[in-house]
Amino acid sequence: MIRGSIVALVTPMTPDGAIDEQALARLVDWHVEQGTDAIVSVGTTGESATLDEEEHCHVIRRTVELADGRIPVIAGTGANSTSEAIALTRCAKAAGADACLLVTPYYNKPTQEGLYQHHKAVAEAVDIPQILYNVPGRTAVDMLAETVARLAEVPNITGIKEATGDLSRITRIRELTGPGFAIYSGDDATAREAILAGADGDISVTVNVAPAAMHAMCAAALAGDAARAAELDAGVSALHRTLFVESNPIPVKWALWWMGMIDKGIRLPLTWLSSEHEAALAEALQRAGLSRKS
């Protein structure tokens, strides 16, 4: 089981929107050096919605190559078409990903039975560990704990990223699934409390910019050291808020640009961070001990 601090990695791009291969290599190496426990490649933060299937598969494949066994790679392969999700998951398996992360189908708003049948179909089609991803604020559908428990009985479905920010949901899923089923927080603001309540880690936006601090915080929480975890979390708590002043990954891409890690590249319909938010985000980065590359 993968545990700890997991980065929902941005897909770096050049100003014209092309994938920036050099920056991707730089980010992967940095996360390995900083102690990040795993990488999610081409999830929501990786702009999965605006990469075509060929690009999607390429970024996963390249991330696996760059990681070179030093750190697990979880491939984002969710889609609101079951056949597309199967195709992307097959691609990730062929690329050598360690697991896949599949968001609940968005926009078409399936029923709980539809969610069950969708994920079951993908799990039966591709023999690779699969992590469910529930983020109703973006998908307009909420996978209930009882549906998660049904899916936990399906071979290959090994965990869930639960991003409602509802700690009682974490507790309920743990009660229904048991310790062998991985639960990851998908909400940085409540991740520390989620881990202390029984989650196995955090699939995080904040880790993109503060990997060492988030690794240390998750490790302390997993060890049950609530005081140390709270102390570490306080240092990055402003980032948990300001990295969502506009739709993710707009703020985190600006932050990484500010730090000199990536170029100014993002794809429409997302746009570069509005100037009115720059000062607050820069202040949060500095409060976390991060500095701007001159």
Rank of each mutant, 00 (worst) to 15 (best):
T14K: 15
A99E: 06
E33G: 04
I86V: 13
L24R: 13
L51V: 02
E53I: 05
K109M: 09
L24Y: 08
I60G: 00
Q112P: 02
G46Y: 04
A75I: 08
A38D: 13
D29E: 15
L101S: 10
A99S: 13
A38W: 15
A121R: 10
L66W: 02
T44A: 12
V73L: 05
W30Q: 14
V32R: 11
V32M: 13
I39K: 04
T63F: 01
R62I: 03
I71T: 00
T36G: 07
E54I: 12
E65L: 02
V59F: 00
G43C: 13
D16G: 04
T36L: 10
A18C: 10
G17Q: 03
T44M: 12
A79N: 08
H118Q: 02
G17A: 01
T104I: 09
L101Q: 07
E55M: 06
H118C: 02
T82G: 02
T44F: 12
A95T: 07
R62W: 02
V103G: 02
K109A: 12
Q34F: 14
S83T: 13
P110G: 10
C100T: 15
P15I: 09
D29P: 00
T77Y: 05
V40Y: 15
P105L: 12
H58S: 12
T77D: 01
H119P: 01
L115D: 05
L24H: 09
W30G: 12
P72H: 12
R70G: 02
D98W: 12
E53A: 14
V28I: 09
C91V: 04
E55W: 10
R90M: 05
W30E: 14
E65H: 07
A99V: 05
T82A: 10
L51Y: 00
T45I: 11
L101M: 15
G76C: 06
S81M: 02
H31L: 08
D98E: 11
A99P: 06
S41E: 07
Y107V: 15
I74Q: 03
T104K: 03
A49I: 07
I86Q: 02
A94L: 14
D52V: 08
A79Y: 05
E84S: 08
A92K: 01
T50F: 02
G69E: 12
